[in-house]
Design a protein around this nucleic acid. Structure first.
Lengths: 204, 204
DNA sequence: AGCTTAACGCTACTAAAGTTGCGATTGGAG
DNA sequence: CTCCAATCGCAACTTTAGTAGCGTTAAGCT
């Protein structure tokens, strides 16, 4: 009756997760197939289908793994510097030949599959909350209005990167990243990205 | 040797295009299949495969149709008003039960297929260029610095909408749209979104 | 150690996606 | 009007994705 997280199941899960990431890095999302993951992991095809259901299930599971590892929140001393560092970290991640395709695959999978979308949603909520730390510090330093919505500042800063990558399919340079960060910083400083009067704290 | 744009081919193409849009509106991108489009259009499955190749090809073609029809660029008298109107138009489009799924399908298809990505790229380049008109007017009125990058202001304004919809999968309210527009306006007014010194006019 | 059973491996099967070859239309030029 | 070639319709086929049934393995408990 009890689960068996300590034994074979755990080994299988790890093998499949790792194979999924490796396949994603090599062939991207459109080249990801259950059969190839099964072969690479040494786990049988039927088993993968039983436990993960589909390609999107594999990705949703890999996302949980990605969510666990924390994020280096910068502390440069200035708000503009922190924000620039965050956005450049995002841009650099997508430019990386290994991490880039994997991250892009997560976004691509979530566009199609509800489970992956939920996983990605949770992932970003955690990221926004972590990154909002730089806004809190800026408020304490008096650089920003007290009612600034931290998570929304992060959204404004990184959104143009994702917009270029996944919507308009334009190239993204480091210069674009810096500009997006500066734009969000300017808007925050102008007091435009303020917290809501009505309770909207819990999104969704 | 010559093409035959006037005859049967044109009829077939129109039928398939229309069937594609209808199927997208009903079942969304994940429910779009070549076979159903073939049945609905009255065109044989093989023919659709030969001319469009795949589901993504169908969408890429439908996109060209969408690109042709022009866009109502607002003229409210103030830059902030114009920008708000544009972003709310985008947000409203995705909220529409008919246009929403179709637009979302375009984005979803482009994430996976190179042809669809190119089509969508061209589509947005045209849109940005058209919408940048509101920035030009604002510059003439003296509301913005002369070297403001019009297309980039539009990008900053609409990016958070797409970011929420297709990346973080958060709900998008009208309030979010207004805030995104105001943030971009504030950044533009602060002179952060300025044109490049080195020639980067031709993107890509 | 021995037992129980959740989880896995394997083969065979079904369903759906996509392809091929050929004969039938049809638009357009002489 | 006649002919030609591009395009389409059609049926059969191949390939790939996903499922079902059943025997086998091994984790965890006594």
């Amino acid at each position: 009756m009890e689960q068996r997280p300590g034994g074979r199941s755990a080994r299988v899960r790890d093998a499949v997760r790792q194979a999924t990431l490796a396949e994603l890095a090599e062939h991207g999302y459109s080249g990801l197939t259950v059969e190839n993951v099964a072969i690479r992991s040494g786990v049988h095809k039927t088993t993968v289908y039983r436990r993960w259901g589909s390609v999107e299930g594999l990705i949703a599971d890999a996302l949980e793994l990605a969510r666990e590892e924390p994020w280096p929140i910068p502390d440069t001393g200035s708000f503009r510097g922190d924000l620039r560092a965050i956005v450049r970290l995002v841009q650099g991640g997508f430019a990386d030949p290994v991490a880039g395709p994997i991250s892009a695959a997560f976004v691509a999978a979530a566009v199609q599959n509800g489970d992956a979308a939920r996983s990605l949603h949770d992932f970003f909520m955690a990221r926004h909350e972590q990154a909002a730390e730089v806004v809190r510090r800026a408020v304490e330093r008096g650089e920003l209005p007290a009612d600034t919505d931290g998570a929304d500042v992060i959204r404004m800063a990184v959104a143009p990167i994702y917009y270029r990558l996944f919507v308009t399919h334009e190239p993204v340079t480091e210069r674009d990243a810096v500009r997006a960060a500066d734009a969000a910083a300017a808007a925050a400083r102008a007091g435009v990205i303020h917290g809501d009067p009505a309770g909207r704290a819990a999104d969704q």
